[in-house]
Amino acid sequence: MNVFFYIIINIMLPIFLLAGVGFIVQRKFRLDTRTFSKLSIYVFVPVLIFTKVYEAEITIGLLATVFIYIMAVQAVLLIIGEGAARLLKYPRSKKKCFINSLIFFNSGNYGLPLTELVYKGDPLAYMGQIFIILVQNVMTSSFGVFQASSGSSGYKKALRDVIKMPFLYVIAAVVLVRALNIQLPQPVMVPLGYISDAFIAFALITLGVQLAEIRVGFNLRDMSVASVLRLVVSPLIGYAIVSMLGIQGVLAQSLILGVATPTAVNTAIIAREFDNEPDYASQNVFVSTVLSPITVSIIIYLLNGTA
């Protein structure tokens, strides 16, 4: 029960306060939502990726383990999502958005602080979550963008949109910097740090702005299917895969918890940027986030019982 109230007060309340700021501002001033999307995609996310990779104490073995784990979880969710979308007879654009909502989860501003709470700064659990964030950002900026863009256009245009994404060049730049052991000067790192630290607040305010734009009422069936798959089925898949890979202890628990988080805010951002069912995407983020304290608390209890 203490964990449940901690999640409500220290994670959920700040999330909704920030989203509420965006909601109120959008209702009052009617801002251009695409401007928010472009700032996130072309400024905040690239800087976040660069600073996290630059600062992380990377262990190749751990990175490879997390990469294989995340790829496996996303592959299974992709297959399930394709099947569910066919059963629900979703049109192409909605299917793409639906799948993005399943395979991309809120590892940054939800998973990381949650891990710090549950595992009290355990370095293995913490680094596992850092690597999840890195893999998620790369996948969102590539496959996620391809999905969103191809939902409302052809595959050639979608591929061009992926190539335009700055993440490819950011990853190349930071890998080169680290390989050459280049120490970036403080005048460069300080502004990068400011932007990186501001990402969570900006992303949540952007979500609030998008929620204020929603005109269509919630479809209970759609929201129920997406939320159950994201919040319940995903951690079950995570449990099965860590067992198959032979991952044990704190790392196994933190990886399962990492894929139990709600739909990533970035899915709503790229949906807005590429006009791929933006209202539906924002609804998935909102509903899964509201329901997550219940499901995440149960998962934490079950994981502690296996410790």
Rank of each mutant, 00 (worst) to 15 (best):
G22I: 04
G20T: 04
S101C: 08
I70H: 07
Q136V: 09
A226L: 12
T33V: 08
Y239N: 02
P166M: 11
I80Y: 03
Q253W: 01
F199S: 07
L114K: 10
S107K: 07
F67M: 04
Y69L: 13
N109M: 10
N284M: 15
P113W: 04
G249Q: 01
L134V: 15
I70F: 07
A173K: 09
A198V: 13
C97V: 12
V162G: 03
V118A: 11
G217H: 08
L114I: 14
F29K: 11
A264V: 02
M71E: 10
I79Y: 01
A226I: 15
A281K: 04
G61I: 04
F16G: 03
I294T: 02
K94M: 00
I171A: 09
A307R: 11
R86P: 10
S142V: 10
N266G: 01
S254E: 03
R221K: 13
R215S: 14
S37N: 12
Q129Y: 05
L18D: 00
F199R: 08
L291H: 01
G108P: 10
G246K: 08
I70K: 11
T261D: 00
K38Y: 12
K38C: 04
V188G: 05
Y239F: 11
Q26R: 14
N106S: 11
I130H: 05
M139R: 05
F218D: 02
E57L: 05
V216E: 11
G22R: 07
M1A: 10
A173T: 13
I300W: 06
A64Q: 08
L62Y: 11
S227D: 06
L291T: 03
T267M: 06
L134C: 11
P185C: 06
Y280W: 09
S152R: 15
L31I: 14
S40P: 02
A85D: 10
V290D: 00
V228F: 10
S297N: 03
K28D: 05
Q253H: 04
A212V: 08
F143A: 12
S149F: 07
A252L: 04
I256K: 01
K156P: 04
V287Y: 07
G154Y: 08
Y126K: 13
I79R: 03
D222K: 12
V45C: 08
T115D: 11
L180Y: 10
L62V: 06
S297F: 00
N284H: 14
T33G: 05
Y110G: 07
Q136C: 11
A172Y: 03
L78C: 07
I70N: 14
I15R: 14
N109F: 14
F50M: 08
R230G: 08
A268K: 01
N137A: 07
L204S: 03
S254V: 00
A268R: 01
D32T: 10
D32E: 15
E273F: 01
G111F: 06
N10H: 11
Q136E: 15
K156Y: 10
L236W: 02
I11W: 06
V296P: 00
V287A: 08
L255A: 02
I7Y: 15
S243D: 06
T206S: 09
Q248M: 01
K89M: 12
G154W: 13
P278E: 04
F23I: 05
V259S: 03
S227W: 02
R30I: 01
P91E: 09
T59R: 15
T206F: 15
P113D: 05
I171L: 14
I58R: 08
A173H: 05
G246P: 01
